[in-house]
Every structure is written in structure tokens, then in C-alpha cells.
Amino acid sequence: MKLGAFEELVLLAIGALGDDAYGVTIKEILKEKTGKKPSIGALHSALYRLEDKEFVTTHEGGATAERGGRRKKYYQLTSYGIRILEEANELRMAFSRNIPGLNLKTQE
């Protein structure tokens, strides 16, 4: 199963947010970490794809006034999602070790 670059970022954001990952917070944290402002459409598109690929699960939260009485949809990493992030990370590591002059600080 492939994981796109933006999808990976979104997945990381969901993981970082823990129990408070829903549309607006994910958008905020992405803006904070990357400095780019993804549109809600782009974000939702990635979220639905991640959901389809079963990297995340969703559950609905309570309605709030600032959302015009609508429910939040919370996202949470699945174990499959965690593993796909690990795999992506390992792949990057394995590749970058072989690049001479590229100095990477790793946990190893």
C-alpha cells in the first residue's frame, strides 16, 4: 500500500495530536510544523484516502456551537497506520545511509 508524501504528513499529524485529531486541529498543526496552509478540501481528500486505506479509524465526537451544531470527526492511527509510518521511515533511513556526504542524526 502506497503512502503519499502529503498523506504521510497528515498521518504524522494525526499521530502527534493523539486524541484531539480532527479536521481543524490537523490543519492547524500542519500549518505550524510545515509552514504551508493546505486547503480543507485537500486535507479532507487525504483523510478520506487514509481512511479507505485503513491507516486511520474515525469516531464522531460531540456537537459544538462553533461548528454550527455539527459533530467533530476524530481520527486515530490504527496499528496498520503506525506500521506504515515505521516502514516509510525505515525506507528513508535505508536509502539515506547510502548517500555519501549526507549526514543524518539517527537514533541508532
Binding site: Y22, G23, V24, K27, I40, H44, T64, E66, R67, G68, R70, R71, K72, K73
Partner: peptide, 9 residues
């Protein structure tokens, strides 16, 4: 539901 909610927020 989700999209409109996010947009409103």
C-alpha cells in the same frame, strides 16, 4: 457533516 463542521469552526 464533517466538512461543513470543519469549515464553520
Amino acid at each position: 457533516e464533517e466538512v461543513l463542521g470543519d469549515l464553520d469552526e
